[in-house]
Amino acid sequence: MEIIFEEDIEMDRGTTKVTTHPAEKEHWANIEVAIQTSEKRIMVINAKNDRNVSIVSSSIAVIEPEGRMCSVRVITGEMFHLNTRLKFVEEVLNSPQFIKINNQTIINTSYIKEFSATDNARIKVILTNGSCYFVSRYYIKNFRRNYHG
């Protein structure tokens, strides 16, 4: 099978168009699965030794600002740094599974264990690793709209 990549500035970012010969239609499901399951990797800095490391974005549980960088905590508990500000992280990740829940936190919705309403119209979110975060009132609509757990 020959693979040809083309750019189309008219397409939305995050959209992929696959064009095949009609005889290849029986393979579309396999092609879609291969594209959907391909893991996006990002370069982070190991907090212990300052070395660059490539990690799978789906392993990230929480991202929080730390000075001019961001701290990245993966679900296993390891800590990394991402050399960008929090306001640009969503562009770097470019994934609907990451939701900003307050001015200081982006979480991976894949790791939400449970959530419940609290005082002052906020939501308490508990991740599978036991960590607890709060969705601020400003981000509640976005959280409800984008979390499909």
Score class of each variant (00 low, 15 high):
Met1Tyr: 08
Met1Ser: 11
Met1Glu: 11
Glu2Ser: 12
Ile4Ser: 11
Phe5Lys: 12
Glu6Lys: 11
Glu6Trp: 00
Glu7Asn: 15
Glu7Thr: 15
Asp8Ala: 11
Glu10Ala: 02
Met11Gln: 02
Arg13His: 13
Thr15Tyr: 11
Thr15Gln: 14
Thr15Arg: 10
Thr15Ala: 14
Lys17Glu: 09
Lys17Asp: 06
Thr20Ala: 05
His21Pro: 05
Ala23Trp: 08
Glu24Ser: 14
Glu24Ile: 14
Lys25Arg: 11
His27Thr: 09
Asn30Ser: 14
Asn30Gly: 13
Ala34Cys: 02
Ile35Thr: 01
Gln36Asp: 11
Thr37Met: 11
Ser38Thr: 15
Arg41Leu: 09
Arg41Asp: 08
Ile42Met: 02
Met43Phe: 10
Ile45Gly: 04
Asn46Phe: 10
Ala47Thr: 15
Arg51Cys: 00
Asn52His: 13
Asn52Gln: 08
Val53Phe: 09
Ser59Trp: 09
Glu64Tyr: 04
Glu64Ile: 03
Pro65Asp: 04
Glu66Cys: 13
Glu66Ile: 13
Glu66Met: 14
Gly67Pro: 00
Arg68Thr: 12
Arg68Pro: 04
Cys70Met: 06
Val72Ile: 01
Val72His: 06
Ile75Asn: 00
Ile75Pro: 05
Ile75Leu: 06
Gly77Arg: 07
Glu78Leu: 03
Met79Tyr: 04
Met79Val: 07
His81Asp: 01
Leu82Met: 08
Arg85Thr: 10
Arg85Met: 09
Lys87Phe: 14
Lys87Cys: 11
Phe88Met: 12
Phe88Thr: 10
Val89Leu: 06
Glu91His: 04
Leu93Val: 04
Ser95Gln: 04
Phe98Gly: 01
Asn102Trp: 07
Asn102Val: 05
Asn103Ile: 00
Gln104Phe: 13
Gln104Tyr: 12
Thr105Ser: 14
Ile106Arg: 05
Ile107Ser: 01
Asn108Phe: 08
Ser110Leu: 15
Ser110Val: 12
Tyr111Arg: 07
Ile112Met: 06
Glu114Tyr: 04
Phe115Pro: 00
Ser116Met: 12
Ser116Gln: 13
Ala117His: 09
Thr118Asp: 09
Asp119His: 11
Asp119Ser: 14
Asn120Arg: 15
Ala121Tyr: 06
Arg122Asn: 10
Ile123Val: 02
Val125Ser: 08
Ile126Cys: 01
Ile126Ser: 02
Thr128His: 00
Ser131Gly: 03
Tyr133Phe: 07
Val135Phe: 07
Tyr139Lys: 03
Lys141Trp: 10
Lys141Tyr: 12
Asn142Met: 05
Asn142Tyr: 02
His148Glu: 14
Gly149Thr: 10
